[in-house]
Simulated scan of single mutants.
Amino acid sequence: MRRYLIFILLCWPLWASAQKTQEAQEAQDWIAYRDAYRQMIWFEKYGKPKQFLQNHFRIRAREKGASTDGLRLSLNSKNIHQSLTLDVLGRAVFPFSKAAYDDNAELTLNRNASQFRSGAWVSIVTRADGVYAAADLRTACEQMLAYLQYAGAAAGKACVGVQFSYPRSDAAEVVFQTAGGASTALVVREGPAFPDDVQSGFRVVAYRFAAYPENGRIVSSSVPLAIAALLE
């Protein structure tokens, strides 16, 4: 019993220190700019084709109960104070700044940062006219897969399609048109904008390559919030 008490007394300072560190991390409302910069620069330096891809810095909820309504992101340092606009999916245009890097700036949230995941987020570029050649979407998916594999993810995956996402209030229609002009409406359902997200409530339309001819095009009646690659 005495040995057990001595063991506890010896280990207590280490446990208390670890507990304080964990509590400090859970209470933080900031993200190191330098860490985010290192993630984002991967895409900038990527030398293979990526004309159908775009890269954002994204904040997304870890759990379903963590709301992103009213979430605000800003870049702050001794000399910099800049608000960064988040879209409805939590994406922001990342400010590449040598001054912010040198100042060891912080990306600050108005919420507890431990409730959210943050980092680089690549998606497929949307078109204002809503018209997407089937061949381009296949190429976009392959570009996404190649980039993720370059970044050390998506091992063993293959491109099976893409997913269009819309606000719940958007009654957008998405159709596949063959080269001969015949049209087939794609099924609309409710789900997350990106396959791995915990938050749903969006209108999503999956275009799976195997279900349609290689030649043709996808026509969307409005601009989607995002286009995600379906990798399985």
Rank of each mutant, 00 (worst) to 15 (best):
T126F: 05
A99G: 13
I124S: 04
E142Q: 15
T126S: 14
I124N: 08
V93W: 09
S114H: 13
A134H: 01
V131A: 12
C159M: 10
R127G: 15
C159A: 13
N104M: 08
A133V: 09
F96W: 09
Q115K: 13
S97M: 11
V122Q: 00
A99Q: 15
Y101I: 14
A154I: 00
T126D: 13
A133F: 06
A135T: 12
K98M: 11
G119T: 01
D129T: 08
E142M: 12
G90M: 04
A133Y: 13
A146E: 09
A135C: 06
P95R: 01
L109C: 07
F116S: 09
A146W: 07
M144S: 15
D136I: 04
A151R: 01
A151I: 00
A105T: 11
G152P: 02
C159I: 04
Q149M: 06
A153H: 05
D102R: 14
M144T: 14
D136K: 07
D102Q: 12
A120I: 06
A92F: 04
I124K: 11
T126N: 14
A155C: 08
S114I: 14
V125L: 11
V131M: 15
N104Q: 14
D136V: 07
G152M: 00
F94E: 03
R127V: 13
A128D: 14
E106I: 06
A158Y: 03
N112F: 11
N110C: 07
N110G: 02
A133S: 15
K98L: 15
S118L: 05
Q115D: 14
V122T: 10
R117S: 13
S123I: 07
M144R: 12
M144W: 14
A120T: 03
S118V: 08
V160D: 02
G130H: 12
Q143N: 09
V122P: 00
V125S: 14
A134E: 07
F94G: 05
S97I: 14
N104F: 06
A99M: 15
P95I: 04
L107A: 05
Q149I: 02
Y147L: 02
M144D: 12
V93R: 10
R91W: 06
A155T: 07
V125I: 08
V131K: 15
V93S: 13
Y132S: 09
S123F: 09
N112Y: 11
A154W: 00
A151F: 00
T108P: 01
K157W: 00
A92S: 11
T139R: 10
N104A: 12
G152H: 00
Y101N: 03
V125W: 06
V160N: 02
A133M: 12
R127K: 15
T108N: 07
V160E: 03
A100S: 05
Q149P: 03
F116N: 07
M144Y: 15
Y150W: 04
Y150P: 00
L137M: 02
W121P: 02
C159H: 13
G90P: 05
Q115H: 15
R138C: 04
F96L: 07
W121V: 01
G130V: 08
A135V: 11
